[in-house]
Simulated scan of single mutants.
Amino acid sequence: MKIVIVGAGQAAASLAARLRAKGHGGEIVLIGAEPVAPYQRPPLSKAYLLGQMGLDRLVLRGTDWWADQRIILRLGETAQAIDPVRRVVITDKGQVAYDALALTLGAHARRLPAAMGGDLPGVHVIRALADVDRLAPQMQPGRRLIVIGGGYIGLEAAAVARKLDLTVTVIEAAPRILGRVAAVETADMIRALHRAHGVEILESTGISHITGTDRATGVALNDGRELPADLIVTGIGVLPETALAQTAGLTLDNGIATDALGRTSDPAIWAAGDCASFPWADGRLRLESVGNAIDMAEAVADNILGADKPYRPKPWFWSDQFDAKLQIAGLGTGHDRIVTRPGDSQHGGSVWYFRNSRLIAVDALNDARAFMIGKRLIEAGRSPDPQAIATTADLKALL
């Protein structure tokens, strides 16, 4: 069986490795639009942008590994369409036939519209290696950076910029930072962390447009103010890559819709990672995380080979900002109670999410013990008494 993987990120590398580990001896072809082998994305906005990690450490596997595993890399090649009848992927360099096709296309950064100046030179996003290679030389001490968007990517970029001694302002249109992804209590800890390091955070602040003609010179706010800037980073979320799936007539629903096995509406085509949504509770879920990219890709690889085992995600995330690490286990969506617990450091502590008295998520800032214990409790389906979380001297007793 010839298996073709389109998309060359974390999910693609994990899927290909799993196929070989599970004994698949047939041809595996990996097609990626970027000219480099699959690499880690999380360090892009942190260690790589800081210059602390080179491309040699960023890539997931060395050149020899791909050759040893007999996995054909077709890099710098863009898949343009899928012909599901003939089972062929059409690229800008030819056609690739498949018996089974896996789409690990990831997501792309949302950009401000051109009418708002989103395409001006000096306006950056952080998603791919090339994005950071363009941004890094501009991050010079003393320059003024405006970050549009108070989500994790924007805040990570802000933290790196302050480490590099730029003047940094974060603009968030919503009432608070991290509004879609974290509780008020977690946002309060992160806001305090940034302000302690000199980052200016403007919340409930809408943007009219980016100023400048040949190049971005600042940001005009809805209240009439104009903030000058030497460079701008937009961190306003990502959108799943679905255009290729659409050409094949696949069902889309918050990404490429799959069943519990990772199979799309075409039985010969599968999907995994940031681009894919799967059944969850009474609806569908799409997770943007390294953990999901790895776990779902491995589940899909197993199911391509006949395992017939539904994917059961164990969500976990992390974000490094300054010298602090935020670790998240579970999904806090729909919580009806929050319990907080102080940590050992000034900028630290944990936030515990409950729904109907059931523990569903934990945010832990500089508190690895709280993260690990919370993660184990959630995965085991155990929910300690909320008051015990707040008062127990040793969290390990909750296990």
Results as ranks from 00 to 15, higher is better:
Ala107His: 07
Asp68Gly: 11
Asp99Asn: 10
Met116Ala: 13
Pro84His: 05
Pro113Ile: 10
Gly51Pro: 04
Pro43Cys: 05
Val88Asn: 01
Gly62Asp: 15
Gln52Asp: 15
Pro43Leu: 02
Gln95Thr: 10
Arg70Ser: 11
Arg74Leu: 08
Leu73Ser: 00
Val59Leu: 14
Arg110Asp: 00
Leu105Asn: 00
Leu50Ser: 09
Arg86Ala: 13
Gly76Trp: 00
Arg110Glu: 05
Leu101Ala: 10
Leu55Met: 14
Lys46His: 08
Thr91Asn: 00
Ala81Lys: 12
Pro121Ser: 05
Ala107Gly: 08
Trp66Phe: 12
Gln40His: 15
Ala79Cys: 14
Ala100Asn: 10
Arg87Met: 06
Lys46Arg: 13
Leu60Lys: 11
Arg74Thr: 03
Gln80Gly: 11
Ala67Trp: 10
Arg111Trp: 02
Gln95His: 07
Gln69Phe: 04
Val59Cys: 07
Ala97Thr: 11
Trp66His: 09
Arg57Cys: 14
Ala115His: 08
Arg41Asp: 02
Asp83Tyr: 06
Leu44Ile: 12
Tyr48Leu: 06
Gly106Trp: 03
Lys46Glu: 00
Tyr48Lys: 03
Leu55Tyr: 13
Asp119Phe: 07
Thr78Met: 10
Val123Thr: 05
Gln95Ser: 13
Ser45Asp: 03
Tyr98Phe: 12
Leu55Arg: 14
Leu50Ala: 13
Arg61Asn: 14
Pro84Phe: 09
Ser45Gly: 01
Thr63Trp: 12
Gly51Trp: 04
Val96Cys: 07
Met53Gly: 03
Asp56Phe: 14
Gln80Phe: 07
Pro121Thr: 09
Trp66Cys: 12
Arg86Thr: 06
Thr63His: 11
Ile82Met: 02
Tyr98Arg: 01
Thr91Ala: 08
Gly122Gln: 11
Leu103Asn: 03
Ala114Phe: 05
Lys93Leu: 12
Tyr48Cys: 03
Val88Met: 12
Gln69Asn: 12
Arg70Gln: 10
